[in-house]
Design a binder for these strands. Structure first.
Lengths: 196, 196, 196, 196
DNA sequence: CATTAATCGAGACGGTACGTCTTGTCTTGCA
DNA sequence: TGCAAGACAAGACGTACCGTCTCGATTAATG
């Protein structure tokens, strides 16, 4: 994560303990009290640090949330041997990620700011969208290589459909995501195969 | 829209002019300055009313945004004669709706609060999700009746995929939605037809 | 009391019940909650009337308080046969008046506004100061006629000393006024007699 | 002046500049616009500070006014060599103090709240009444020592008479205080001498 | 070892939004 | 017209939050 100001070489070095405390406190507060309960003072108090220590690392609250709730949350999807299997695992991963209160509250809180903060939107794309898209591409490329798909599908559309469906299911419709992965994987798999 | 306190029968009746002014000012400010620039004082000033007139109608800022940016924005989808046609029109409608700055800024701002405000989530479902789902069901029912689909598909999943894809495309990936309706309609249509 | 707008001759006549209810409610609220708890809405609610009925009678809150807490509270001082006796009775009267919570809270609340509201100051003088001064003059004149005083003293100074002492004793120093009348009467009587 | 929350030992210390700015702005606004024009926002704006800086120091608006308009306004009375001289100077001092618009508007505004706010009344007594009473006692003691008075008079009554007379003259009767000091000193001196 | 420079916790700072309250006016329907 | 009820515009109240700054005390690396 790009820092507000990168640490200088001279003087007292930054304490890793503080980095960790900020991230933990942010996650805890997001999980407990949501976007509304996440104040910089509360983070500092919970982390047992001063506010300056936060702003030395992150220029804004959004950057801090980004680092705590979004950064590094996209794992690689393992090769299960079939497209349907891969998609099921992928869906399970996305569901698991968005089901965690800290991640979801952080993510949704950020979404509302993206529209009026281009810099934030860029960082957001870099940390979340790009890794996700790359993972999706890998999964689809494997299916093509296996011969399950005739041609490389529209990755961007696939990403929007797949991620968007989970987002909508959990946050907009607020339904139980228990059997969503299986259903979504089957639905999407059918669409991909049908594309000539 | 359910009010903060429902107007009593006696005394001076509420002025429709004020309702209208609040809604207009909210939409304008959302469009111009986004979620961040939408302050209650600004709404009151722009609407030429007092803040009490707002709080007499809406218990919270979120309720006000809900009424101004979400309520009554879901139109019926006309029958184009084919599933693909219907889905294209439906996608165009959703895209048009989410492309309007007032609606999108309002909607995204609300999304972040839904996780920790059950009452708001209920109102949100009632005003947005339910009408959308009902419209989706109608479109799919027509396709079944036409014989385009063998059985009634999973409406909930369809709604999540369709709406979620647009949401993700526009707000998460932040891509140009120009040719999204056609691509999304074709993709979804294929999946629905493939379902046994 | 001069009204905000004098009642017109035509139409429905004003109800005396309403006048009485306003005055009573004002006095009760002043006594119970002081100047701070006296709001126009509270008076209207307690009196079981509409706010318009109050503003039809009094142009401002201050006028209402003036009418309820100040007007007509200055009784004549009976002739006890001696200056000391008269002064004692006069002091007892003033103490009694200022000891009533409604009157005192009303009076003190008004005092704070007099400095920046000339119209109110005029009404205040007319309703309270003038009657008091006239009463004082009568008492002193009687003492001159009796031969207790050689010449007519400075009535204005006497009024300020006498009323001000009680005011200061009760509200500024916040002492028990039980034996104030006797002490004040003796002190003032001595001063008046000593004046050559 | 006892603060809302006393400053802690750690952290950034409070700035004296801010204390001074609050007091000055309060005095200026009281003088210019009276009790009614003294709003917390106006004080903050005029002082060039945030409202939080005020509430960090004073729990309520009244406390702030107390500190700005009352605290430390009671000077010692110099020894003129005679009781009449001392009393004249004392009266002049009181008149001068109450003639200043900031002090008078602040003081009168507070008087109205004393009846229903015991804590405020206590602070008021501590900051204004006690110093005044102590000053009065000194003046009277000097007169006894000089032999002008046979015995120590009733200080409490004297204080009520002397201060109350000025209060009543200026604020209740609203008369010109130009020759009040001389008249009041002569009147009170006579009474004190006459006491056996 | 002594100096230097950035770190740390704590909390004050200016600015600003929040949701509530109050004042004096206005607008209903009923009497 | 008067009346009870209550909506209206304006704006102050006291609280909370953000991002910056200032204090005294630490803590490495450098001279």
């Amino acid at each position: 994560m790009a820092r507000h100001r990168s640490p200088s070489r001279t003087g007292r070095p930054r304490e890793a303990r503080v980095d960790e405390a900020i991230t933990s406190a942010t996650r805890e507060l997001l999980a407990e009290a949501g976007h509304h309960g996440l104040t910089m003072d509360a983070v500092a108090r919970r982390a047992g640090i001063g506010k300056a220590a936060i702003y030395r690392r992150y220029a804004t609250k959004q950057e801090m949330v980004l680092a705590a709730a979004v950064e590094g949350t996209v794992p690689a999807t393992p090769d299960t041997g079939s497209l349907l299997g891969d998609l099921t695992v992928l869906a399970e991963t996305v569901v698991a990620r968005l089901s965690h209160p800290a991640a979801s509250n952080g993510l949704l809180g950020l979404l509302g700011e993206l529209g009026t903060d281009a810099a934030l939107a860029g960082r957001f794309a870099e940390l979340l969208i790009e890794p996700e898209r790359a993972g999706d591409e890998l999964v689809l490329r494997r299916a093509v290589d296996r011969g399950e798909l005739a041609a490389m599908p529209d990755v961007e559309l696939f990403h929007a459909v797949f991620g968007g469906a989970v987002l909508s299911w959990i946050f907009v419709s607020r339904l139980d995501p228990a059997d969503l992965p299986a259903r979504l994987a089957r639905f999407t798999c059918a669409a991909l195969r049908a594309e000539r």
